[in-house]
Structures are given as C-alpha cells and as structure tokens.
Write a protein that binds this DNA or RNA. Structure first.
Lengths: 237, 237
DNA sequence: CGCCACATTGAAGGCAGTCAAAGGTGGTGG
DNA sequence: CCACCACCTTTGACTGCCTTCAATGTGGCG
C-alpha cells in the first residue's frame, strides 16, 4: 500500500517502524479538497492537525481591512496546524485554503496525543518539526520588523537559490504568483513589482515571467546586511 | 532543597515525579549573570537551552543598522532558546541579554535529549511550551504585518489587563521602559510617545509614568478590529 | 548639584500603501 | 484557432504613517 511510503518520506514520521505507521494510518482520515476550498478559518475550534499529501495549501492571516499576510504555503509531506494540538482547548491561529486540488490526512487531536505518549521518537520528530516552524517565524519577524522591502526580497531570492547550485548566475522559478509572493513578504504586488524593476535596473537580477536570474549575489547579500543570517540558512533548507 | 519546588512550578516540568526532577537537576548547570550581560549572540553555536530562575532577560534581534526588535522578555520559570535543541547542528536565532541580575539553569543539549527519549511526559510538556511560543510569534507577525502602531498598542494594553480584573478602569503597570515597549511593538520610542498622547487626548487611557489606566476598553477593542483575536487571548494568558 | 538615561515634542523627509488605469497572460468554450 | 474573460502584472500619481534628527524636559542617583 503506497500510503506507507508516503508517510515514511515525511520528516515528521521518519524513523518509525511499520507497526507505528500502521497505528498512524488507523487514526488518519483521508480527505480531498478542490481548488479554492477553505479547510479552516482563524479562530475556529481546532480538533486535529493536517498532513499534506498532494497539492498546495495557503496558510494566511487577514487584517480587519482584508489585507492578506501569507504565513506559509504548504507542500506535500508537510504538516500544518500542529500548533493546535498542545495548548489546551485551542483554536486555529490562521486560515487555510487550497491553491490547487489537494489531498490531506487529518489526524484527530486526542487519538494522536495518545500515540505520542507511547512513542518517544514521534515526540522528538514533532519537536523537530515545530522547531523548524519557530525558526521560520523567527525569520519572518526579522524581515517584517527590521528590514525594508528590498532587503526582504533579497533575502527571499537568496533563500530560493537551488541547493548545490554553484553556477555564477542561478535561476529561480517562482512556484507562486507575484501577488502571493508579495503577501508572503508582507507587502503588496505593486510594491513588489517596483522593487523587482529597481533590481533589474541596477543589474542585480533579470526577470522573465516566473523565472528570475540572479546576476549579482553579492549585491543581494549586501542588501540583507545580516552576517548571522548565513548560518541560519543552512539549517532551514 | 528548594530547587525542586522551583522546577515543579515551571510548566515545562509539570507532572514529573521526583525521580525525574532529580535527573534534571543532575544535568542542570546553575549560572549567575549580572545586569547587562550577554548570554549569547545571534548565530552563535547553540549547545543547550536555558530556564530562568530569577531576573529578567531580553530576547531580541538586531537590524544591520542597529535597530533592536525585542521578541520576548523572559520571566522566572520560563525557558528560552529551546528551539536550539531540535534542528541538528544549530545556532541561536537571537540575542539574549540580562535586564537585571539573573540566575538561570543551563541544560546541555545532548543530556537533555537523552532524558526526553525516556520521558514521554517531558516531551509533551516541551511540545506544549513550544506551541505557546508559536502562538506568541503568530500574534507578533499579525501585529507587525497587518496592524498600525495604534492597533498594536491597543492590543498590548488589552493583553496586559490583569486577569480576573473586572473593574471598569483597569490599571496596568509597565514592567519595562517605554523604549523597550516600543521595541516590542516594532516601533520607536518617539512614535509610542505620540500614540500614547493621542490615546490620552481621545480619553481612552490615562498615563502616569509607568502606570496606565484604561478608561475605554471598548475603544481599544475597536482599534484592534480582529474579532477572532478574542478567542486567542483566552488561551495565551 | 549635576550627570545620565529615559521621555517628550517639533519639523522634515521617505518608504510604502492606495487608487486608478492600462497592458499582459492563461484558460475556457465556441 | 480564435475570442473572450478573469486574473495577474505593471505603471503613475498621490497620500499618509512612521522614522529620523534635533532639542528640550524629567526623574533617579551618586
């Protein structure tokens, strides 16, 4: 059954034996969503968490005026809403909406916590996963509070350079629309468009639709400014 | 020995029996710091995490230009830098500096992880603690990206109303300088000063040094705007 | 008393958001 | 294959919030 191999590939369940995976499958609910569906809303009572099997799911917040801040775009193999599990009677802290047709596993809270109690390895994995999130949020706070849009975009671009790519002019292909990228960077599409244009004029990048070629990595790193950033990048990818 | 009772009171170690606490004490290193000392810097290699015993410790980030964003001010009983434990070879994601003379426990990474492996309850506590952090960060991102300074200040004030206080005009006493509060809110002291003044003129609050009286809760909540916020507040306090 | 850190106030300037409109792109159905 | 439509992207003009800089006010403490 191919669901086993799906679970095994997911970092959250790495190192678990088949018996444990079987137990997980027993409590997992397989769900299908079509593009544009809302999985849950912010504030809604949370009784479990999700694991993405296929598709892309947008996790975001809304301001009172309707502005959208994307926290994360979830890809297959990644869990989301884990935070719901461990803080008493809890509610979802953001919205979740499918960007494409998607399949997910839904793990009800109480059953999953029972598994955790008898399964130290699973707990450790869970902790590792949540650490990743904390680091991601940490970066996001850094970006939003300490850097202007140019720096945020520069950081994003550096982050997106494919690993092991030692070419002089790495190529990045966006997996989302520029409007969505703008929202992730805490800005709006107009400003992103202007910033990209500025980078182009300064010879830092070349843009062709969703393809961006980095012409001057040095300049990008200077825009970011943080020395300590480099260290973190290694662990976040 | 009074260290036992200290550990027991800490949410992170709630529900552990004396034997387990004894093991924790065995690996804990007791450290003293005087006011203004740097415990660790961002990017520095992380080999363990901390638990505050007494004093106040500021966790913050620095922008290239030297602007400070306070992530959190840690109080006794609270752990910090736990994120360092679970992401492979890791580095501290922020700076930590004492605001007062402080005592802490330092738990070396490898020894602590060994304890976790044989101790499901401790793992669950750890997960709960990290969930709290995720929620806190979540709010911070919301504040920084979606709200203006007035809304951020309003949210802070509402949050700081002492629990169980049903008085019509609750009194808040700041535990930090206004400059530090400004930094937590992602702004500067001048702007905070102006915003406080505006609130005063609108009859929303009264300010006397570090004492702030809330005169119009309704107005503050309207400034925040988020309906869903209310739900979260309950769980975060 | 005088120092120092913090707080307040004013003036000026910039970054980025909003509004509006035009240009581009992809997908659907005729 | 083309036409149409919806959505995304780009550009310009304008506005405003917030930061910066500079100066003055205030309080605690040796």
């Amino acid at each position: 059954m191919e669901l086993y191999s799906l679970l095994k590939k997911c970092p959250l369940f790495a190192g678990l034996d088949n018996e444990q995976l079987k137990q997980l499958l027993k409590i997992a609910q397989h769900k299908n969503y079509s593009k544009g569906e809302l999985l849950f809303a912010e504030g809604q009572s949370a009784k479990g968490f999700y694991l993405t099997l296929c598709g892309k799911i947008k996790i975001y917040k809304l301001s009172p005026e309707g502005k959208e801040q994307i926290l994360h775009i979830v890809s297959p193999g990644e869990p989301f809403a884990e935070v719901a599990l461990f803080s008493g009677i809890s509610s979802y802290p953001a919205f979740a909406e499918t960007l494409t047709n998607s399949e997910v596993f839904y793990f009800p809270k109480s059953e999953f916590v029972d598994l955790l109690k008898n399964n130290p390895q699973l707990s450790l994995n869970m902790l590792a996963t949540m650490s990743q999130f904390l680091r991601r949020f940490n970066h996001m706070i850094e970006r939003l509070s300490l850097q202007d849009v140019s720096a945020r975009l520069a950081q994003f671009l550096i982050q997106e350079i494919p690993l092991g790519n030692n070419q002089q002019h790495p190529l990045i292909t966006l997996t989302m629309t520029k409007t969505q990228l703008a929202s992730q960077l805490g800005t709006v599409s107009e400003t992103l468009s202007r910033t990209l244009k500025k980078f182009k004029q300064e010879g830092i990048i070349a843009v062709n639709g969703k393809c961006i070629t980095i012409l001057d990595q040095e300049a990008l790193r200077n825009l970011i400014g943080f020395d300590t950033k480099y260290v973190d990048f290694i662990h976040d990818c």
